[in-house]
């Protein structure tokens, strides 16, 4: 009990420190600095309607490449961790009911479609590669939950994932060789609100979407496979 109180006091001190720090930044007040530049220049410089996307992909594209790498490493870590341990314990997942099964069949293609829509319109509307990819992975999750025997073909998913990552790097290198800096915009900006606008953002987000989708699906596959991954684990 004393322990809890002591740590409670510690937490209060930490939070008080953050609160004191935050008191310099009043809520709801305009304190933009770089943000101003991005807002003013996004349309002329990048041709994208979604400023957040232009910041993630255009101004801070290198960062996002790192983020994709982190995601990749995490997926790799999960896979390695799972295939390191012995998959002895078998545990049957509950049989799902009829409604889930049929509902999944109906909804699954639409989920994929929505995911694709979201990552292809990342530069125009809210969303982008990460969100769309996560949505796609959710579709696969649904498939796993509904159908006991689902098992994604890992080889193909790895291929898609690799291609997605490669797209990003190749576009970056194209920028390096054609414009002199990594991830420089090598494509025309197009007209605002067109699907084919925003320069390199569209291909990059398509790559990221595919990559994230397949990666998160792989993570789900790793986590779900207890019964199913006997054969997948066997080849390891």
């Amino acid at each position: 009990m004393i322990r809890k109180i002591v740590y409670g006091v510690f937490i209060l001190i930490i939070i008080a420190a953050i609160a004191i720090f935050m008191s310099n930044y009043k809520f709801g007040v305009d304190k933009m600095d770089v943000g101003k530049y991005y807002l003013d220049n996004t349309v002329p410089q990048t041709g994208a309607a979604n400023v957040v996307t232009s910041v993630t992909l255009f101004y801070r594209g290198f960062d996002t490449l790192g983020e994709v790498t982190v995601l990749f490493t995490a997926a790799l870590g999960v896979a390695v961790l799972y295939f390191m341990g012995e998959n002895k314990r078998k545990q049957k997942l509950q049989e799902s009911n009829f409604v889930t099964k049929i509902g999944t069949r109906v909804v699954f293609p639409f989920i994929l479609l929505t995911g694709a829509y979201i990552f292809m319109h990342g530069h125009l509307t809210p969303g982008g590669g990460f969100q769309g990819g996560a949505l796609i992975a959710t579709g696969f999750l649904l498939l796993y939950l509904a159908y006991e025997e689902t098992s994604i073909d890992r080889k193909k998913f790895y291929l898609v994932e690799g291609l997605g990552g490669l797209t990003y790097v190749i576009i970056g290198l194209l920028g390096f060789f054609m414009k002199g800096s990594f991830l420089a915009n090598v494509l025309p900006n197009g007209t605002l609100f067109d699907l084919l606008s925003g320069g390199i953002m569209l291909p990059i987000y398509i790559g990221v979407g595919l990559k994230v989708g397949s990666e998160l699906s792989n993570i789900i596959d790793d986590l779900m496979c207890e019964v199913k991954c006997e054969e997948a684990g066997g080849e390891e």
């Binding site: 979604n50 957040v52 996307t53 545990q91 997942l93 979201i118 809210p126 969303g127 982008g128 990460f130 969100q131 996560a134 949505l135 992975a137 959710t138 999750l141 998160l216 993570i219 789900i220 986590l223 779900m224 207890e226």
Partner: peptide, 27 residues
Amino acid sequence: QAPDVAMSEAAIGAALTMAIYIVAVKK
């Protein structure tokens, strides 16, 4: 006014993370 973040949080933070948790609890 952060629709992008909202979308991420809903798709990744809520759905996927929860799935991962559930699987972990289940196992």
